[in-house]
Design a protein around this nucleic acid. Structure first.
Lengths: 176, 176
DNA sequence: AACCAATATAAGATATTACATATATGTGTG
DNA sequence: CACACATATATGTAATATCTTATATTGGTT
């Protein structure tokens, strides 16, 4: 149910087309939400149908025309209600840990490779997070909060790397 | 696609009924995978239909009869293939960060409450993880790996709490 | 006997997500 | 002009997940 809200949030900052929305999701909020292109367009259509967003066609000369989406008053209310509603823990689903849990079926070499693959994955994620340029500056509240979500991802990535170090050391000790 | 594999993994350690499987998922692997009861039964049926698991009815006197599920040879092959297949990063979806990202629309008090609610949530998760008794002991490889998945959850919970400390301090500084 | 709780399984309906494919416009390049 | 590529939107389909309800057995409690 939260993709609707994430989209309302983005459109409340900046009205845009579905195409740009997909790009914005990938680039700016990708560390805590992702969405398929088709899902973005379908969700936009749903928001418009429910009166939470409006669209108007904007003629463009150097590109195909687009639908510019904005949040309606009802959409803003919906957004604020969601922001203030009680948190509920999301179901955790971590395929890597699932594998590690059963990985004693694998030869030790393959276990080391699994840990190494995870390390590469996390290093990539960390690099991506640190590469996200935060355009605005200053002590604006929104800016502080958005930086905090980035810092969250970075902190967890670093923790994962430290945990990998410890886990690899533990594996060495228990496999002579 | 991974619930099938997680179930194959659990059944490869210990054949059991759908009912016990659901309990085991909640209690032992809940920190990296969750599943609805109906999903567990449906997935079991699917595994049996695909020849990856088998079921036999076991008559019980002090309880309703049950279907005891075991992994077939084909199921074990499937499990091992999955364990050794390349990792692919799961889409990250974190409703809490999504809210924080847009939370500057809320009054500051509500933002503090959001952070506090998250702290309560994480404290609960941490307590649950630390309460998981790991029955087996010794330097058995499987034991080491399962402890490592627990340690992973604990490390990330602690990181989240530290990040909350820092974020709350930052919020104080930027809201006079 | 009536009732509740735990054990045990399953199906119906809906929501969400993912994967693939289709279509069209405009720019730039060989 | 053919072709590739970025921009722009949309649908079909399948896989997954969630929410709800139904059913039956057994043991214990009032």
């Amino acid at each position: 149910m939260s993709l609707r809200h994430a989209i309302l949030g983005i459109l409340s900052i900046q009205p845009m087309s579905g195409y740009d929305l997909k790009k914005t999701i990938d680039e700016s909020v990708g560390h805590f939400w992702t969405a398929d292109q088709s899902q973005v367009y379908r969700t936009l259509t749903g928001l418009v149908n429910d009166g939470l967003a409006s669209r108007r066609t904007v003629a463009q000369t150097e590109r195909p025309n687009m639908h510019l989406h904005s949040v309606t008053d009802r959409g803003l209310s919906e957004l604020d209600e969601w922001l203030a509603s009680p948190l509920q823990a999301p179901p955790s689903r971590e395929p890597f840990l699932a594998r590690l849990f059963f990985a004693d079926r694998l030869p030790v070499e393959a276990i080391r490779e699994l840990l190494d693959a995870r390390r590469r994955e996390v290093n990539e994620q960390l690099a991506a997070l640190e590469a996200i340029a935060v355009p605005e500056n200053g002590a604006d509240l929104g800016h502080v909060l958005r930086l905090a979500t980035l810092a969250n991802g970075i902190a967890h990535a670093k923790t994962e790397l430290e945990w990998l170090d410890a886990t690899e050391r533990g594996l060495e000790r228990s496999t002579p």
